[in-house]
Design a protein around this nucleic acid. Structure first.
Length: 489
RNA sequence: GGUUUCUUGGCCGAGUGGCUAGGCAGAGGUCUGCAAAACCUUCUACGGCGGUUCGAAUCCGCCAGAAACCUCCA
């Protein structure tokens, strides 16, 4: 915790020093997926962004409780279908229990996250498991006078709320503008004021997912689950709330209103939002139908993909852009990331084999400190990566025998690369993770020794033959002045 | 229409007033039986027009183009 971390707070639109409420504890809440379909590249962005934050906070010594929800109820498909939610619709179309749909896509989401080396959160609550808590919050808001019942549904009284508290600060909205543009939503007639949003909706009899409440058999409003689950597990006031920028309005704006109305104060101290991933300059999203699922990336089964991309290539691609910038998908860019990542990982394998010398002939140049500085500057992962690439030069020069490093410098370099590459950026060397590695290492080394002898005898036919056979097995041989290097392609 | 944001070299992408990241691709070289790898060198950009300043990719104005949000969305 000797690191002074600055993060961009979306609410104040400023870079602020991060100071947790109860150090060394940090409470972090991030809006998770609605599990009615496979995760696409867009879902990888917040998952990786906040995984980076989670990992970094942990690395610098905080004890983080990371809550990321699963939305399994309460998002309406559109205005016209009188309140059928996405999961219920999927269940009806597939002739499944809604919870079967939820479980199926939750499992697949977890698998994708695991592939991307995204650590599981500390708590992963489901909206459907917290109906009681949501009802309690509605009751609190009613008791505070900021909600009213109308025909079995409960609405947030925004007009009244806005007289006492500011509304629209997070998203920069002005009430009058919003009022002028409000569309004719379902149930508009039950509302006192066009902008009032639903806290509880009375369900039609055929609605599959419904629960009893003091007002009607129905289901909770769209924004309530996050308020209920974040405050339940992190307290009435907690440190960081994250999510995609597209959730700023209305989702997070309504969360602020709900918790302020229920508790008398805001719950969130720092708001953080990741930007979108675009495809041909347009946001990648379900509603636009231009998304590529993570599964498709990993198997190459999408017409826009020229080849398969490994989970780590996708992760590295995302980390090479700052989380608050949009990042545009493209085969060329992805392949550049893939190659760059391989170079970095190869460099680290080389680093791990380097032997220390009496003294250093080259200056490490504060690479460790520079990496921390970049992370402390609102998680600037592209800069961290740039520093890691810079250091590769030193590693390769030492490997080539052109420079030397002292034991302490070498240790510092190894520590820096392992901390930042693996622990913080969360990359992993997929080739190294094989448990047969030792056997393969031994075999290949022996074979290459034989080849060395052939070379020494100028028997290039044999040496080339051995190399060709190894190449055919996917093993790349690199001759050096004295000896050889090899790696699995 | 309103609000907000963006426009960087062949591609991706950092950078908020001077020291002009990084990756990929390209070019030349060193090394090498050959190859690969590695290393060295090189390619020097900030949409347009004005303004502020000793100095602007970075600040201000206008214009052009694009996007996000305003409806579920990561």
């Amino acid at each position: 915790m000797n690191q002074a971390l600055y993060i961009h707070n979306s609410l104040t639109r400023n870079r602020e020093l991060f100071e947790p409420l109860n150090p060394p504890h940090v409470g972090l809440y991030v809006c998770g997926p609605t599990v009615y379909g496979d995760a696409h590249l867009g879902h990888a962005r917040p998952a990786i962004t906040f995984d980076l934050l989670f990992r970094y906070l942990t690395h610098i010594g905080y004890k983080v409780r990371y809550v990321r929800n699963i939305t399994d109820v309460g998002h309406l498909e559109n205005d016209a279908d009188a309140g059928e939610d996405k999961i219920a619709k999927k269940a009806r179309l597939e002739q499944l229990e809604p919870m079967e749909v939820v479980q199926y896509f939750t499992n697949r989401y977890h698998h994708n996250m695991d592939q991307l080396n995204v650590l599981p959160p500390s708590i992963e609550p489901r909206a459907s498991g917290h109906i009681i808590e949501q009802i309690q919050i509605i009751q609190k808001i009613i008791d505070a006078g900021f909600a009213y019942e109308s025909n079995g549904s409960v609405y947030f009284d925004l007009e009244k709320y806005a007289k006492k508290y500011p509304y629209g600060e997070l998203s920069g909205r002005i009430m009058d503008d919003l009022t002028a543009q409000t569309r004719d939503l379902d149930g508009q007639g039950e509302k006192h004021f066009p902008l009032d949003f639903a806290l509880w909706k009375k369900a039609a009899p055929e609605h599959i997912m419904q629960w009893p409440s003091p007002w009607s058999d129905g289901f909770p409003g769209w924004h309530l689950e996050c308020t209920a689950m974040s405050t339940k597990y992190l307290g009435d006031t907690f440190d960081i709330h994250g999510g995609g920028m597209d959730l700023l309005f209305p989702h997070h704006e309504c969360e602020i209103a709900q918790s302020t109305a229920a508790l008398g104060h805001e719950s969130v101290r720092y708001w953080m939002h990741n930007n979108m991933i675009t495809i041909n300059g347009q946001k990648m999203g379900k509603s636009l139908g231009n998304f590529i699922t993570l599964e498709e990336f990993f198997t190459g089964s999408h017409k826009l993909l020229e080849k398969t991309y490994s989970p780590m290539a996708v992760r590295f691609f995302i980390l090479q852009a700052h989380y608050r910038s949009t990042v545009d998908f493209g085969n060329e860019a992805l392949q550049a990331s893939e190659k760059g990542l391989q170079r970095l990982l190869t460099g680290i394998r080389t680093l791990d084999k380097l032997k220390p010398s009496e003294k250093s002939t080259i200056d490490l140049g504060d690479i460790e400190q520079k990496c921390y500085q970049a992370m402390n500057d609102d998680l600037n992962s592209p800069i961290v990566i740039a520093h890691l690439f810079d250091g590769l030069r030193i590693i390769n020069l030492v490997h080539d025998g052109k420079e030397t490093l002292s034991e302490s410098d070498l240790e510092q370099l190894k520590r820096t690369y392992h901390h930042f590459t693996f622990d913080i950026l969360g990359l992993k060397d997929e080739k190294q993770a094989d448990n047969q590695t030792e056997l393969v290492n031994g075999l290949v080394s022996h074979i290459l020794e034989i080849r060395q002898q052939a070379k020494a005898n100028k028997d290039f036919a044999t040496s080339d033959n051995i190399r060709n056979m190894l190449t055919a097995l996917g093993i790349e041989v690199k001759d050096r002045k004295d000896g050889f290097d090899w790696s699995i392609k």
